[in-house]
């Protein structure tokens, strides 16, 4: 299982993801503090962290849990906040199709934005299943450990940690660090601009569906730009 090409894949995946993973740290701490602030015990907070393992869905549902919202509303909100992973799952599925079912379930649970954003293209291009697995699982497992560790810091340090330093902005910086080099080609830039502005302009849609609509528009615009660019060259 841990042969040479697995190790080479793991090293490449880990190296590409390591600098960006620092952005997870403040985000995890903030999530830990937020879970304690609505009255979850440390055990309940870390349980939620392990079971849900999705920062956006956790932060998004906390106010609803605190308000005693009905279960269906909690699930619906979490579903909408996680909906972008359906797109990621569809994009990555061909790379995982040959693996065992247990491995597919495990890798689904570990799927996060950062690893998908930085490594999906490399993983899909590789013909070597061992290399692919290493390249995916090493940074994903690292991300899980980092997330659990620093959420625990937030959970235990809630009340002691200084607020008001806007440290959660480091998560946004990490996303930008991934986004900028990705937008080097014109269709990618179009996809990013339409995806971002679309989400902002559609923010009035109910149930936070504006983000999903924005992502869908961005994908369509990028694809259209690619065809338009190719057509232009041919003419």
């Amino acid at each position: 299982m841990f042969n040479d090409s697995f190790k080479r894949g793991a090293a490449e995946g880990f190296r590409a993801f390591l600098p960006l993973s620092v952005g997870i740290v403040p985000w995890a701490v903030v999530t830990g503090v937020a879970m304690r602030s609505i009255g979850l015990s440390p055990l309940e907070a870390m349980g939620m962290n392990a079971i849900v393992y999705a920062g956006t869905a956790q932060l998004g549902t906390l106010p609803l849990i605190a308000a005693g919202a009905p279960l269906w509303l909690l699930v619906l909100t979490a579903l909408v906040l996680n909906l972008r992973f359906v797109i990621f799952s569809a994009a990555l599925a061909p790379a995982f199709a040959g693996y065992t079912r247990r491995r597919r379930v495990f890798s689904s649970y570990l799927l996060v934005d950062g690893v998908f954003a930085v490594l999906s293209e490399r993983i899909l291009k590789s013909d070597d299943p061992h290399w692919r697995w290493g390249c995916y699982i090493a940074p994903s497992a690292w991300c899980w450990v980092l997330w659990q560790t620093f959420t625990l810091v937030g959970v235990l340090g809630a009340g002691v940690l200084p607020a008001n330093w806007s440290l959660e902005f480091m998560a946004t910086i990490a996303l930008l660090v991934m986004l900028v080099p990705m937008s080097a080609t014109r269709p990618m830039l179009v996809a990013a601009l339409v995806g971002g502005l679309g989400t902002v302009l559609l923010r009035g849609l109910p149930l936070k569906l504006g983000m999903i609509a924005g992502i869908a528009l961005g994908i369509a615009a990028g694809f259209a730009a690619e065809h338009w660019q190719r057509g232009g060259r041919r003419a």
Binding site: R84, I87, F88, S89, A90, A91, L92, A93, P94, F96, A97, G98, Y99, R101, R104, V105, S107, S108, L111, D113, F116, A117, S120, E121, T172, L175, L176, M178, L179, M182, S183, P187, M188, L189, A191, A192, L193, V194, G195, G196, L197, G198, T199, V200, M211, G214, I215, A216, L217, G218, I219, A220, A221, G222, F223
Partner: peptide
Amino acid sequence: IIPGERARLPATLQRALRYAPAAALAALVA
């Protein structure tokens, strides 16, 4: 990912999804 071979998307849609990371990152940042 879990259904594996049984859930294949059409090739065109699969190619369009290459734009998903950029669109999604921008949607989180903007």
